[in-house]
């Protein structure tokens, strides 16, 4: 499918200078991701004192508590919400990204900015605006009443539906933007060629456009799904904090129960599971790429 690399593989093997170039990023990751994570890992094996500070004594108690089925259930529910959000974002966002990517050149960046600008108002204010719309005596129900006065008002706010609306709203741009990056690169000639060969619009879409923009979809999925799993504020504000997600539980260990070691253990397991899954996916992805080449 993709053209075979023209550059011989040995020039892709990094020279020490290439490592030097990568050094700032590696250093950044080590200092501000690895070291803090290591601190948390140490904490997760400790006990708490009454301020919530850690006492350095080795214990596995926190991990034993993580194994409680309550947390597993909460974790699975979080994945469910994030997965649903991701799917809706793809379905809703893809056509938008495509439209922007194929727009006239002078329009593209303006449209892209237009997608992002709503998110430059504070999250809290935006969310309260949504509450104004969705509440029982809100704008949406007012509008419905105008159309048909006998209709039963929607009870949307503080329900799982409201949470999903909030999640899709918050993460949609993070799906649109990377897909746009892939669509913009699409070669018009390829699409035309497919048409010339007699493929209908649907066929062109499913066998030419989708495969070519797959990297964008994959990137968008990563940027939406991953942060959405650990999200906490939207469930609190739009869901009425009725059903806890993993993000809320971790947050509470620090800001309510004052139990840092347990919060750290929950976080360590959560991040560890994610890193493992992601690493395996990368490995499988590399294998399938190799077999294509």
């Amino acid at each position: 499918m993709s053209p075979a690399p023209v550059i011989p593989t040995d020039s892709r093997t990094p020279h020490w200078r290439a490592w030097l170039l990568l050094a700032p990023m590696v250093a950044w990751l080590v200092l501000f991701v690895v070291v803090p994570t290591a601190i948390l890992l140490v904490y997760s094996f400790c006990e708490r004192d009454e301020v919530g500070r850690v006492l350095f004594s080795f214990t596995l108690e926190n991990y034993r508590r993580v194994a409680d089925p309550v947390y597993l259930r909460i974790f699975l529910r979080s994945i469910g919400y994030a997965g649903l959000t991701t799917i809706i974002c793809i379905v809703v966002g893809y056509p938008v990204a495509y439209c922007i990517g194929r727009a006239r050149e002078d329009w593209r960046q303006r449209l892209l900015l237009l997608v992002m600008v709503p998110f430059w108002t504070s999250f809290l204010i935006r969310t309260y605006a949504w509450i104004t719309i969705l509440k029982q005596e809100g704008l949406l129900n007012g509008f419905v009443q105008q159309l048909s006065p006998t209709a039963k008002p929607f009870d949307l706010l503080y329900t799982p539906t409201a949470v999903v609306i909030g999640l899709v709203y918050a993460y949609l741009p993070f799906m649109i933007l990377p897909i746009y990056g892939s669509v913009e690169k699409l070669d018009g000639a390829l699409i035309e060629a497919a048409h010339d060969l007699g493929a209908g619009p649907l066929r062109v879409f499913s066998s030419v456009i989708i495969p070519l923009t797959m990297p964008g979809i994959a990137a968008g999925t990563l940027l939406v799904f991953v942060p959405a799993v650990g999200m906490f504020a939207i469930t609190d504000l739009m869901g009425g904090a009725r059903v806890p997600l993993i993000g809320n539980v971790i947050q509470n260990q620090f800001l309510q129960a004052r139990d840092w070691p347990f919060g750290a253990a929950l976080g360590a397991v959560f991040m560890g599971l994610f890193a493992l899954t992601y690493w395996i996916m990368l490995k499988l992805g590399a294998h399938s790429e190799d077999s294509v080449a």
Partner: peptide, 24 residues
């Protein structure tokens, strides 16, 4: 551009801040 040793682990490491709960 380059095939670094441990590139996959590095790639995973890059994704960690995205999943890391803000409070942590």
């Amino acid at each position: 551009r380059y095939r670094y040793r441990g590139a996959r682990s590095l790639q995973t490491l890059v994704a960690v801040p995205m999943v890391m709960p803000e409070i942590l």
